[in-house]
Design a protein around this nucleic acid. Structure first.
Length: 549
RNA sequence: GGCCUUAUCGUCUAGCGGUUAGGACGGCGCCCUCUCACGGCGCAAACUCGGGUUCGAGUCCCGAUAAGGUCACCA
């Protein structure tokens, strides 16, 4: 058989150059010893997953910490799944979480010497190597149809054989020259398959940077390397791209572990040195009573977009990812709350070996703490940005009077007090929680723990006494006076000694006032709220509450 | 089902032959307190089950069980 001729017929690409050309075009990178070249290789499906971020952070940390670099490669070999704007979504997500890549898709300039970074634009390179494999008799055309393939799979399943295209089942593996050209002449579509030299009887130990030593068997599947449209499959593109982009370390999801034998064989057959691999466990979630990996299809609420919409503070999400990624991060962060995250010594060896369950509680806790570090101005900006994109029109209106809002934020964040409050978890929640400061969203559902008559006299009594000019203690004296006038205890010790001697205490009176002015039982300091609200509005709200009784 | 991987409080985990099995989130209780928070203190809460090896096993070995991943012209 004339393999050279067959290669030219099967992979007609006039741009293909000799193999040396590519080696020279993409030379070894000149980096310090130990520097790692990592990559982010999303497929542009338009869905940015929390898992993508998880892996991205690990890749980014290791690259930059080692003095190396991380690049962005778009794996767009599957036309069917491609979604417009998906690359922008990836870039936006990376920017939102402040994950920098050094070269790759959409970056202009000389530093992009290892491009192109869109796989579809790299067809020439894949073709060059596919042809080479054909010439060496290590790849061949396969004319099997989808139906034939699924029939084969069913047969194998029925016979309890391992499914797939291999050995005796590889129908096109040993087609004669005449048969091949006859099929070609008949216009049958074909793919290019690897002629696997492996044997599953042979096991080898593979060292994974995350999981440690694992046993893998040789690949014996004649996997497709070039699809019928001439575009490579993931496996083939992976081997070629990570070789020529000079990747030193591939951190990817553990779903790739199963295809590692294929990749090992491909690297061998192509004569490339393999990068190191770290297979990262996927995040899981509880689904009913089983836990499973987060799935794009089933868990839209775990897309990164979800976190943006809810207004999670990006740094909080990042910190949470880091605590899951490296178990010693949390302790480090507690000791070094002010130190830049980049100074944490990220260790690939400390990455967990089993999948973690995503814990929204923990994220909320981290969010509160992160948000409590902001100044009122920073909080204003954060909330403003969120509201602009996701808020209601009324909520957008909150930002019209910046001075007013800043006062509210200072109060709700406990700025100026001994301790910061931690009332805010997300932008959405924060904006909703301050709604009572605005008449448009002040919609109280008065719920008192005392009978209407009592509440009415207390509210009325306080309203008469209230003076906007009172300072905090004068104001509270009036609260106490109102309480006393109605027989309520003003001395908590006395009240606690004998609660039955009083109808209630000052705290109950304060709660009535709080409910009347805010509609809520939980708010920051009431006196300050009244100060912010202003005299007119405070009085109006008291009046409204009284007349509602 | 085959193959690979994993197995410590509800969750994330520390542990790397001798520990009262530690921390964080969540839960609960107490204190502080005009409310709510914040903060402080405390409580409950775990080594999947069998066999070995060893003076001694959460830690090493072997099984069982369970869970996860994967078996495409998708990545």
């Amino acid at each position: 058989m004339d393999w050279n001729k067959l290669a030219d017929v099967l992979v007609p690409d006039e741009n293909v150059k000799p193999l040396d050309y590519y080696e020279a075009l993409y030379p070894e990178r000149d980096l310090p010893k130990g520097a790692q070249v990592t990559r982010l290789a999303p497929s542009p499906t338009g869905f940015i997953h929390l898992g993508n971020l998880f892996v991205a952070i690990a890749n980014e940390r290791i690259a930059h910490q080692s003095g190396g670099l991380m690049y962005l490669r778009i794996e767009d070999t599957d036309l069917k799944r491609k979604v417009d704007g998906a690359v922008d979504a990836v870039k936006n997500a990376l920017r939102y979480f402040d994950i920098r890549f050094d070269e790759g898709a959409e970056i202009e300039g000389a530093e992009n010497a290892y491009g192109p970074y869109y796989q579809r634009e790299r067809a020439e390179i894949y073709h060059a190597y596919a042809k080479e494999l054909i010439r060496q008799g290590l790849a061949y055309p396969c004319f099997c149809t989808e139906d034939e393939l699924s029939a084969l799979r069913e047969k194998q399943t029925a016979e309890k054989k391992i499914t797939g295209y291999y050995g005796e089942y590889a129908a096109c593996r040993n087609l004669s020259e005449e048969e091949i050209y006859a099929n070609l002449a008949a216009g049958k579509p074909y793919v290019i398959r690897l002629r696997s030299q492996g044997n599953t009887e042979n096991k080898l130990t593979f060292r994974d940077e995350i999981k440690g030593d694992i046993t893998v068997t040789e690949n014996d599947q004649d996997v497709v390397i070039l699809k019928s449209d001439g575009i490579p499959t993931y496996h083939f593109a992976h081997a070629i791209d990570d070789h020529f982009m000079r990747t030193t370390l591939v951190i990817r999801g553990e779903e790739w572990l199963a295809s590692l034998p294929i990749h090992i064989e491909l690297f061998n057959v192509l004569g490339f040195r393999r990068p190191k691999y770290g297979h990262n466990c996927s995040l899981q979630k509880i689904d009913g009573d089983t836990r499973r990996k987060l799935s794009k299809r089933k868990d839209p609420e775990l897309s990164l977009e979800f976190y943006r919409q809810e207004g999670y503070y990006s740094r909080a999400v990042k910190v949470y990812m880091l605590t899951l990624l490296n178990s010693n991060f949390e302790e480090w962060y507690m000791k070094n709350p002010e130190t830049p995250l980049e100074e944490f010594k990220f260790s690939i060896g400390k990455m967990g070996k089993s999948g973690a369950l995503f814990d929204l509680n923990k994220l909320s806790d981290i969010s509160k703490n992160e948000l409590a570090k902001l100044s009122a101005e920073e909080m204003y900006d954060f909330l403003f940005d969120w509201a602009e994109e996701f808020g209601t029109d009324v909520q957008k209106g909150y930002f019209a009077d910046k001075e007013y809002l800043l006062k509210i934020l200072n109060l709700c964040m406990g700025i100026g007090g001994k301790k910061r409050r931690k009332d805010f978890t997300t932008a959405k929640q924060a904006v909703e929680s301050i709604g009572y400061f605005f008449d448009e969203t002040f919609a109280p559902e008065y719920a008192y723990r005392f009978d209407d008559a009592t509440v009415k006299t207390i509210l009325s009594g306080f309203k008469v006494a209230y003076d906007y000019a009172d300072d905090c203690s004068a104001w509270f004296d009036k609260v106490k006076a109102t309480a006393a006038a109605n027989g309520f205890a003003t001395d908590m010790k006395a009240y606690k000694a004998d609660p039955t001697a009083f109808p209630g205490n000052v705290s109950d009176v304060a709660e009535m006032l709080r409910v009347a002015t805010t509609g809520l039982t939980n708010t920051p300091d009431l006196w300050t709220i009244m100060q912010i609200l202003g005299k007119e509005r405070t009085l109006a709200r008291l009046e409204k509450a009284i007349s509602a009784l």
